[in-house]
């Protein structure tokens, strides 16, 4: 009895501690955004500004093309995810279903792409994009990010397809579907939670990507993504940390919103196969 109670206390303590560690930076971001710049230099720090400076958000939106950056980020992420998914659906499905000679090694080879740091690939990619005139275009970021995202989404989808019994597409084929028809009419609809989770994951990868955007887009201000734009707000001599924080919050919000909307799908997508 007491032992059980102790366990519960320990579990709660663990949960609270984890949440505190995870949430503190976000909390501090909010505090920083809402404080006057001058108050940020006091010691000991204030844990909540006396007068929250809500107008900082309006000021940032007025001073910087944040909405344009967010729009660019959205376009880049949507493009990179669409491209990645159209590749990964077939790649993941093949890896899950077809046993071909070398298939397993091919699958693992895809993973090596994700072991290489982006900074290593950035130079050859830059060369390629320059020769085809894509530097400065959002397409460069879309294509480059797809190379980052595809390995992840392929393996996530393979894992999800593995949980779907083969008999489903066999039934569909006996019922008159072609193999592709079975994929589109039966497997993909059944895999919707997995597809949603995978899309979201790809979206977040793209949204938080910086190295490619920085390399390919720096010279094209109109195409800056939110992440890239954000870093340009840090001045060489002075930085308005409250404004940077406010912008950062606004950059984070879309991802949070998507999480909230898709949470139901995400949970069932990530725990697929646990039940059956």
């Amino acid at each position: 009895m007491t032992r059980r109670r102790l366990n519960i206390v320990l579990i709660y303590a663990g949960v609270v501690l984890t949440c505190a560690i995870l949430l503190f930076p976000i909390y501090w971001l909010v505090v920083t955004a809402l404080s006057k710049p001058i108050d940020l230099r006091v010691l000991p720090p204030n844990f909540w500004p006396e007068v929250p400076q809500w107008q900082v958000f309006g000021k940032v939106l007025g001073d910087r093309p944040l909405l344009l950056w967010l729009g660019n980020s959205t376009l880049a992420a949507a493009g990179a995810v669409t491209l990645s998914m159209s590749v990964s659906i077939f790649a993941g499905y093949s890896l899950s279903r077809f046993r071909v000679r070398g298939g397993q090694s091919l699958g693992l080879f895809i993973l090596t792409a994700k072991m290489l740091p982006a900074t290593l690939l950035v130079i050859p990619l830059f060369g390629i994009f320059r020769s085809v005139g894509l530097v400065g275009s959002l397409w460069s970021v879309i294509l480059a990010q797809a190379t980052l995202i595809v390995p992840f989404t392929t393996w996530m989808l393979k894992g999800y397809f593995d949980t779907i019994p083969r008999e489903l597409e066999q039934a569909a084929m006996v019922d008159g579907c072609s193999p592709l028809g079975a994929l589109f009419r039966v497997i993909l609809p059944v895999a919707t939670p997995g597809l949603a989770a995978t899309c979201l994951y790809g979206f977040v990868l793209s949204w938080s990507e910086y190295a490619y955007a920085r390399t390919f887009l720096t010279s094209a201000q109109g195409n800056w993504t939110a992440n890239l734009g954000l870093t340009t707000m840090k001045g060489e001599y002075v930085s308005d940390w409250n404004e940077i924080s406010a912008a950062a919050i606004m950059v984070a919000i879309p991802v949070l919103l998507i999480y909230l909307f898709l949470e139901r799908y995400l949970v069932s997508g990530l725990t697929a196969g646990a039940e059956k």
């Binding site: 066999q170 039934a171 569909a172 006996v174």
Partner: peptide, 20 residues
């Protein structure tokens, strides 16, 4: 001949009903 063109129907052990 492809499965769908053989005009046979199959019943599976795990039923394989389309969940959606």
């Amino acid at each position: 001949v492809a499965p769908g063109d053989r005009d046979v129907a199959m019943v599976f052990q795990n039923y394989a009903l389309y969940p959606h």
